[in-house]
Design a protein around this nucleic acid. Sequence first.
RNA 1: GGGGGUGUAACUCAGUUGGUAGAGUAACGGCCUUUUAAGCCGUGAGUCCUGGGUUCGAGUCCCAGCGCCCCCA
Length: 524
Amino acid sequence: MQVPADRIDKLTRLREAGIAPWPAGSSLPDRERIADLLERADPDAPDGERATATVAGRVASLRDHGNSLFVDLRDDSGRVQVFLRKKALGEERFTLLKEVLDLGDFLAARGELARTRMGETTVFADDVELLSKSLFAPPSEWYGLADVETRLRRRYADLIANPESFGRFRTRSAIVRDTRRFLEDRGFMEVETPMLHAIAGGAAARPFMTHHNTLHLDLHLRIAPELHLKRLLVGGYERVFEIGRNFRNEGLSPRHNPEFSMMEAYWAYARMDDWIESCEELVASLAADHGLHTRGDGEEAEELPRHQVVRGDHVIDFSRPFRRATYAELVREYADADVFDEASVREAAKRHGVEVAGRRLEQVVDDLFGHCVEPHLVDPTFVTHLPLALSPLSKASPDDPRVAERFELIVDGMELANAFSELNDPEDQLARFEAQVAERDPELPAEVDHDYVDALRYGMPPAAGIGIGIDRLVMLLTGAESIREVILFPLLRPRAAGAEDEEAPADAATSDEAAGASPDVAAG
RNA sequence: GGGGGUGUAACUCAGUUGGUAGAGUAACGGCCUUUUAAGCCGUGAGUCCUGGGUUCGAGUCCCAGCGCCCCCA
């Protein structure tokens, strides 16, 4: 994008007047956050007792009245009106300011906090200072920035223009903070395990590849931290967790970004049921504290109780206890199939249009679950007794060897959490790894993680672990329909940046090739 | 990978059957010292995503490509 000529002119005018467009800082003392000022100072105090304050922020609105000027300044705490008058600032300064000031500039202003005739709380400035000149106009405050592509490619513009976006990422931060606090309060220790893995295990997904030069070593970006966190249980820590990024080399969708954030926690001497309790407590409290409880907007806005969260046109009820149902029950209810009967599963798959050819039975079952069951689970539901074949790291249920002591928490059709009693039998684990490798499925590890098996051979206490998808949690609680609304900089095909420079030669090469290949294009 | 949608001024969007490219906001000039989507008068602003084609004439129709969105696999 080109800098408009009028802004270049303004830079020149500023420099001629000896004013730096981007000074190192402000010379006005005691800058206060706008919200703090509005809380501290009384604009209705009698003359002589009113507070004097310095505020600074981005110019969000300009209303020119000739010999005076109203400016709305916005900082990250709020917004306040500043009144600039020729008489208070002096003719020369006032005139220059009016000439060069644009929406989007950063300004500091110092003056008395009082009320205008119209009742607006206002800083009556007797000193102002340009803190940073903007060269591009900000997106329209009134219309916001609606173009999805621009919003994602230029998130900064989205954050300037769209208060919902600005607020949503603050909510995300608060959710992560409170999740961390919840675990710390219960004696969990936060750790950091490697992102670069020689063997990408702990989940079923295609990994990203990378390479370490000096070791001549091919590495994968981790698809899950699970196997390292359990090594720490072997090492003797009893409660560990990690909040961080996982990478899966798969498609993009409103629910999938190639890099996404997970919280994983491992708890020695606990079982799946302990995580049901804790997970429910955590999710319900996050929903109450950070969920979107307002339905509709403007005059028709309706405030819902704190256990109800609005998402799109429906409401999710997070009141405890959450629904509990077994996997087999749900497949029976919604897909009319018997999970443990191959003929029944294949028939149901056909009936519901689920692909069967070339897929393992448990994959077909899982697809059936995803297609027929998940979309119906709107209020939080703990799905228990998942097939053991889908749970290669999980202990079998003592009551039924076909199913795992495992649950998934489904909310609004999305898998939000996954937890199980951890398999700590090294020989069983080795056999399951070997079976995975034998499948030669590109989504499964190509190699057995023998070091992990060895770790189990040292002895891992009985334990239960959980993973919670942070992005999806934020989506659910903030009403976001797409994962891109909760990831600051989601992956997009690169464009613009650099394209302007590289476009020309690239185009020339392509057209040369085309011309060389078929000189008589017009005839065809 | 397949299907559908979409791309017009800095922003939000119109654009009829194919006939000189439009509005509001923002910008620029003017008036106004209590406005708040300030107001009034005036001005400038475009690679209509890109490249072909049809046509006397294409933002509009056709073909190909690109980005983005959605659905499916």
